[in-house]
Structures are given as C-alpha cells and as structure tokens.
C-alpha cells in the first residue's frame, strides 16, 4: 500500500487525494462554527468528488480500463463546478442575511425558527 510513490501516477493516487479532500471537507463542515467555514467545507467536499470524476474520466492514468468514464467525467465535473458556483452564491446570500439579522456568523446561534 505504501509503495505508491514509486509507481507511475494512477487512479489510486487521485482517489486518495480526493479522499483526503473529501474527509477534510466533511470534518470542516462538522467542526467550523463560522458559517463561511462550513461553506468552505462544502467546497472541499465538492472538489474531492470532482477530482474523482476527472480521474475516472482521464485517459492519462494507470488504471483499470473497466472504470472508463471518458469525457463524461469531465462534463460532470464541469456541472459540479458550475453548480458549486451557484450554491456558493446562494449560501453567501443566506449568510449575509443571517449576519444582517443576527449580527453574527456563528451557526450555533442560528437555532431559532422564526423570521
């Protein structure tokens, strides 16, 4: 498992980087109290997944040809990027609204369900 460094770059390498990003994002989402920190966690998770899509679609990597996604992978990751941009815009609008109304960006304080 640890001789990855001596091998040509393959799908595994990418998947591991993607996994690290994904986990970092998940932990980030779980631990950050700042709403924008949570948002950053989401971006990391999306990018981790995105990296996997690209890796699966890549013709460059040492991999099992059974997992051949082709350009579909790239197109999906494009969709993810675009949707992430949209998501960030909305999330930011929500955060700003929250900040306007509550004068804080601490998500732990957002525990009331009234206008």
């Amino acid at each position: 498992m640890f001789d990855l460094l001596s091998q040509p770059v393959g799908l595994t390498h990418y998947l591991i980087v993607g996994a690290v990003m994904f986990v970092a994002g998940a932990v980030c989402m779980a631990t950050k109290r700042n709403a924008l920190g949570v948002l950053m966690g989401i971006e990391l998770v999306l990018n981790g997944a995105n990296l996997n899509f690209v890796a699966f679609g890549s013709n460059f990597l040492e991999r099992n040809p059974a997992y051949q996604l082709g350009l579909d992978g790239q197109i999906i990751s494009l969709f993810v990027i675009v949707l992430a941009a949209a998501e960030a815009a909305v999330a930011l609008a929500i955060v700003l609204n929250f900040y306007n109304n509550h004068s804080t960006v601490d998500v732990d304080r957002a525990d009331e369900l009234k206008g």
């Binding site: 770059v9 990418y14 980087v17 990296l51 690209v54 890796a55 679609g57 890549s58 013709n59 460059f60 990597l61 992978g73 790239q74 990751s77 494009l78 990027i81």
Partner: peptide, 10 residues
C-alpha cells in the same frame, strides 16, 4: 491535478 489528468478544460 486536473491538468495532469489531461482535463485541461476542466
């Protein structure tokens, strides 16, 4: 990493 995977557009 995307560039290295040949996905330069992405």
């Amino acid at each position: 990493l995307h560039f290295l995977a040949g996905a330069d557009f992405v």
